[in-house]
């Protein structure tokens, strides 16, 4: 029998900052990711020629005088830095950015690029959706339906999955999918407590990576794009500051961690569904915002100080923090096949 190398499904992490697609070929998980951002500049022959020369993927939109060059995805950050402009974001705070008119079109373009070569009619795609913010009854239906619509237009069969639960499916197989998954993303921090793969409690906290970037940009006068690059390249949370930027980042990281810890304590203390687990459960941290060195230690310290009501067996980083949501979404999709 001839085995097909085609992935039976795709897991899609539709994050504010990045979109990650997970697929499976020959028993291996594979990942592709793109920055969920784009840069738009007026078209000129010279600009187009230089993009071509640099091998930067781009799209030309509009006609005549309104002609624009759009650079989507990974290259947008570099290009924005080059042009001293801010990149535009299809999403904000975990959902479609209402002030970005091209939100759905750009998101479609990015997803199309990421799933190129894998898509086929009816391909199951499980895509991540955020949970409602603590204390708020946000309507996430529009966001959810928009992503579903984009995927349907790409001829796929979409199913949403809670982002925190996806982290659990990716990382907590050893405890039979019991534990707490936390995804520290760009727009939101998503939390899910799962017991035997059943999501018992999930919520999001609205202060996350973008809050750090924009706050630090306001203080330092730098572009958020540049802050993001600096954060990813050299930053670590250890209480020692190499320069002003690092000092500012430390302050805002602390605020985000404290916000999440307070949210966790509040949610688990107020919930009528406080689990009576027979044994301590693990907590796993994932997402790009959790990547800097020292993040886990700082988080653990603040959580211990908060007298968190559930007994925890460990607090650990996800094996691959940037890919865990997409992987979990794919595991959920494969389990339904």
């Amino acid at each position: 029998m001839k085995h097909s190398n085609q992935t039976p499904a795709i897991g899609l992490d539709v994050g504010t900052s990045r979109i990650v697609a997970a697929s499976k070929a020959n028993d291996d998980f594979q990942y592709k990711s793109q920055l969920n951002a784009f840069v738009e500049v007026p078209w000129s022959k010279m600009t187009e020629a230089s993009l071509k020369r640099e091998g930067v993927p781009y799209v030309v939109a509009g006609e005549n005088t309104g002609k624009m060059i759009i650079v989507p995805g990974n290259e947008s950050s570099r290009f924005a830095d080059l042009l001293q402009t801010e990149s535009r974001r299809p999403m904000n705070r975990g959902v479609l950015n209402p002030s970005e008119p091209e939100n759905a079109a750009m998101l479609k373009q990015l997803i199309e690029n990421l799933t190129e070569g894998e898509r086929r009619h009816g391909l199951p795609i499980y895509y991540s959706v955020p949970a409602a913010s603590l204390g708020a009854e946000e309507n996430l239906t529009y966001h959810d339906a928009s992503i579903a619509q984009i995927l349907r237009e790409l001829d796929c069969e979409p199913t949403p999955i809670n982002e925190g639960l996806a982290v659990v499916f990716s990382e907590l197989e050893e405890t039979n999918y019991s534990g707490i998954g936390i995804s520290f993303g760009g727009g939101l921090v998503n939390v899910c407590l799962s017991y035997l793969a059943v999501p018992v409690l999930s919520f999001s906290v609205p202060k996350a990576g973008d809050y750090i970037d924009s706050s630090a940009a306001t203080i330092t006068g730098e572009l958020t794009t540049r802050i993001r690059l600096a954060k990813e390249e050299s930053f670590q949370i250890n209480g020692h500051y190499a320069d002003k930027l690092h000092q500012v980042l430390n302050v805002y990281y602390d605020e985000v961690i404290r916000g999440t810890v307070n949210g966790l304590k509040e949610a688990f203390s107020n919930s009528r569904n406080i689990p009576k687990m027979g044994k301590p459960i693990p907590m796993v941290l994932s997402g790009g915002t959790a990547m800097p060195k020292g993040f886990r230690d700082r988080f653990e310290k603040l959580l211990k100080e908060s007298e968190f009501p559930l007994p925890l067996s460990e607090i650990r980083m996800a094996e691959s923090p940037l890919n865990s949501t997409a992987k979990g979404a794919l595991v959920a999709a494969l389990a339904e096949l």
Partner: peptide, 19 residues
């Protein structure tokens, strides 16, 4: 995960443990 999702008894067990 498939096993857990397909085990109806699990629902009862979850309710017992979690309330």
């Amino acid at each position: 995960l498939r096993f857990l999702k397909n085990t109806e008894k699990r629902v009862g067990q979850v309710e017992t443990v979690l309330g």
